[in-house]
C-alpha cells in the first residue's frame, strides 16, 4: 500500500457485482480497487450508468458485493450498515421535521443524545447563517439552502467516512459554484475523509485530492489522478494551465475510455 504512514479510511479491493436480469447476469462493477486515506477528498467520475450508486450501496452495507472486500478503518465491513455518513443526490430532507430536527434526528441515529444533537444542529445552523430557518419546514427553503442543510447533516454525523452522491447535480450553475466554494471551506476546516461522486470534471478537479476515473459498465478504474493544486484551493484555480490540461486528460478518458489505455 502506498503511503503506509497515513491510515486508509476506506479500502476497496477486487469489488465485483452483477445483477440478474431475466436469465442473464449483467456485471455492473468489475474489479474495483480504490482507497480513501484519512482526511482525503477522493472523487469518482464516470459516465452515467457506470454503477457509482451501486458502489455506494455496497459501501453503505445496503447491498453486498459478489466478490472483493470493503475495509473501513481497518475492519472488513461487507454488509455492515451504520458506518458512513451520506448525502444523496436530492436533499432528502424529511418534510415533517423542522430543519433543525432533520439534522438532529440523523445525529441521534449516529449515536448522539437528543439534547446534544439539537444543540450542535442549532450551533452549526447559526454558523452557516441558516439559524433563522432552523424551526421552519424544509419546503420553505430554496434548493441551495436545502443542499446546505443536507450537507451539514452528513458533516455532523460523527462518522469517519462521508459519501456524497452527486449532491449538486440538481442545482443551477451559479448555485452550484457557490455550493462548491462553501463545501470546500467547511471541509478544509474539518478534513474528514470524503468519497464524492460527480459527473462534472471541473467539480472533481476543483474539490479533490485524487480522482478515480471509471469506465462505463461494467465499471472499472481507468485511471487514478492526483490533483496537485494547493489547499486552500484558490477560487480561480480553473484558470491554471495545469487545470485545463487535467480537464482535457479526464475528458479524453471519459470519451474514449479503454482504447486510450490499451
Amino acid at each position: 500500500m502506498t503511503g503506509s504512514l497515513v491510515r486508509n479510511t476506506l479500502e476497496l479491493s477486487g469489488i465485483y457485482k452483477a445483477y440478474t436480469r431475466g436469465k442473464q447476469q449483467v456485471p455492473v462493477l468489475s474489479d474495483i480497487n480504490l482507497q480513501v486515506k484519512a482526511g482525503e477528498f477522493v472523487t469518482l467520475i464516470g459516465p452515467s450508468g457506470s454503477g457509482k450508486s451501486t458502489l455506494f450501496r455496497l459501501i453503505g452495507g445496503v447491498e453486498r458485493a459478489d466478490r472483493g472486500t470493503i475495509v473501513i478503518d481497518g475492519q472488513e465491513v461487507s454488509g455492515q450498515r451504520g458506518l458512513i455518513s451520506y448525502m444523496p443526490q436530492q436533499a432528502a430532507l424529511f418534510p415533517w421535521l423542522s430543519v433543525r430536527d432533520n439534522i438532529s434526528s440523523a445525529l441521534v441515529t449516529a449515536g448522539a443524545s437528543k439534547s446534544e444533537a439539537k444543540q450542535s444542529a442549532m450551533e452549526w445552523l447559526e454558523r452557516i447563517q441558516l439559524g433563522h430557518v432552523a424551526k421552519e419546514y424544509p419546503h420553505v427553503l430554496s434548493g441551495g439552502m436545502q443542499m446546505r442543510v443536507s450537507f451539514l447533516r452528513a458533516l455532523l454525523m460523527k462518522r469517519n467516512l462521508m459519501c456524497l452522491d452527486e449532491p449538486f447535480a440538481a442545482l443551477d450553475a451559479l448555485t452550484r459554484a457557490d455550493m462548491q466554494r462553501w463545501l470546500l471551506q467547511l471541509w478544509e476546516a474539518d478534513r474528514r475523509s470524503v468519497l464524492f461522486v460527480t459527473h462534472s470534471i471541473e467539480e472533481a478537479l476543483m474539490l479533490s485530492d485524487r480522482i478515480y476515473v471509471l469506465s462505463s459498465a461494467p465499471a472499472t478504474v481507468l485511471r487514478e489522478i492526483a490533483i496537485p493544486f494547493e489547499r486552500p484551493r484558490r477560487a480561480d484555480v480553473w484558470t491554471d494551465p495545469a487545470f485545463v490540461e487535467l480537464k482535457r486528460e479526464v475528458l479524453a478518458l471519459l470519451e474514449y475510455g479503454d482504447s486510450m489505455i490499451g
Binding site: S85, A92, F94, A106, T109, A110
Partner: peptide, 24 residues
Amino acid sequence: PQLREYLGMIGASRWERLKRLEFP
C-alpha cells in the same frame, strides 16, 4: 423511496424507519 434509501445508507434501524419515515 429517496428517504427510505437515505435511512438505509446511514444505517437506521427498522424501528427508526417506522418512526421517522413510514408512520409520518
